[in-house]
């Protein structure tokens, strides 16, 4: 069956995002899938700035701006209030960056998911605090140079692996968890559609390349997004009703090719690259193992 992306646009022209911004495309696709009966809550994030200064707006749905740590709790309160008012079919959406999700917002996210509110939480993952000028976050991958893991005299970079929040959500038993990225819009929209069928918490992590913070030319955003999947660095999966499915099998694109497209990885030597290759392999093995385990049980 041919799959088409909804034509409805809920994002107006005139937003203030950087050229090649992955997070902006993420929002556009999510809104196409969700439609007009949606309210979006954003914490401090690029997306708190992209819609423009008061009184301008970019989205044709209400947006609630909140403090950094509050997204999970705010969508909980909105959900309950709309249910009280009989608006059960209203989509309540948290749309937060990786800092607002993996770091400062993790507690309220985990609380909201545990309580089981019928909400969507989208983590647009640009792997760092990009709005504040490219600082490291818990979601920044091993090997990346950021402004708080600067190259210095010793060819420095972030020495810790990425905290993958989708994996945490899966471990917590959230009813719907998926990863997606902007190079695969059909896959992303299908996942949002699947999530919609679930009356409960839904978590989708969307890898959203950032030309400014990853140091690549803005016209390469889609390519970087695609290579992240094809190299096995960012596997796409869907976890639904306790069953995991890897939704895009990586094709043989080398990790090295993915890393070499982005100047944030310029500090790495051969050993470092091998470490990242090993990490990607092990993570894929883990996911495929989990896929077998959950599908057979």
């Amino acid at each position: 069956m041919p799959f088409s992306i909804p034509e409805q646009e809920l994002m107006e022209p005139g937003h203030t995002a950087c050229h090649g911004c992955g997070a902006t495309l993420s929002m556009r696709y999510v809104l196409k899938a969700l439609g007009k009966d949606t309210v979006i809550s954003v914490p401090a994030a690029c997306w708190a700035v992209i819609p423009g200064a008061m009184p301008n707006r970019t989205l044709d749905v209400p947006m609630v701006y909140t403090p950094f740590a509050a997204t999970g709790a705010v969508i909980s309160g909105l959900r309950e209030a709309f249910d009280i008012q009989g608006k059960e079919d209203f989509n309540v959406v948290g749309f937060a960056g990786d800092g607002g999700t993996a770091d400062i917002g993790l507690q309220s996210l985990s609380g909201a998911m545990e309580r089981g509110h019928n909400v969507f939480y989208f983590m647009y993952d640009n792997e760092g605090y990009m709005n504040t000028g490219v600082q490291r976050s818990g979601s920044t991958p091993y090997g990346a140079i950021t402004t708080t893991t600067p190259i210095g005299k010793d060819r420095n970079f972030k020495k810790q692996n990425k905290k993958v929040v989708a994996d945490l959500m899966m471990a917590q038993g959230v009813p719907y968890v998926a990863t997606a990225t902007i190079a695969y819009p059909e896959d992303l929209i299908r996942k949002v559609n699947n999530a919609k069928k679930i009356n409960g918490p839904k978590f989708i992590q969307i890898l959203s390349p950032c030309p400014v913070g990853w140091y690549f030319p803005p016209e390469k955003s889609i390519e970087v997004s695609r290579l992240a999947v094809q190299s096995g660095i960012f596997p796409l999966y869907e976890f639904q009703n306790g069953v995991l499915k890897v939704t895009k099998q990586p094709r043989p694109v080398s990790v090295r090719e993915y890393l070499s497209m982005q100047n944030r990885f310029r500090s790495l030597d051969e050993d470092d690259i091998k470490k990242i290759e090993k990490y990607a392999e092990e993570r894929m093995e883990y996911l495929i193992g989990k896929e077998k385990e959950t599908q057979s049980s």
Partner: peptide, 26 residues
């Protein structure tokens, strides 16, 4: 009324704030 025990006071007021903004006395 709906009663939601959250995981911190920051969240308690965040949820209360959100519900009030949606028009429910909180």
């Amino acid at each position: 009324a709906r009663y939601v025990e959250v995981e911190s006071e920051h969240s308690a007021l965040a949820a209360t704030f959100a519900s009030e903004l949606a028009g429910v006395r909180s």
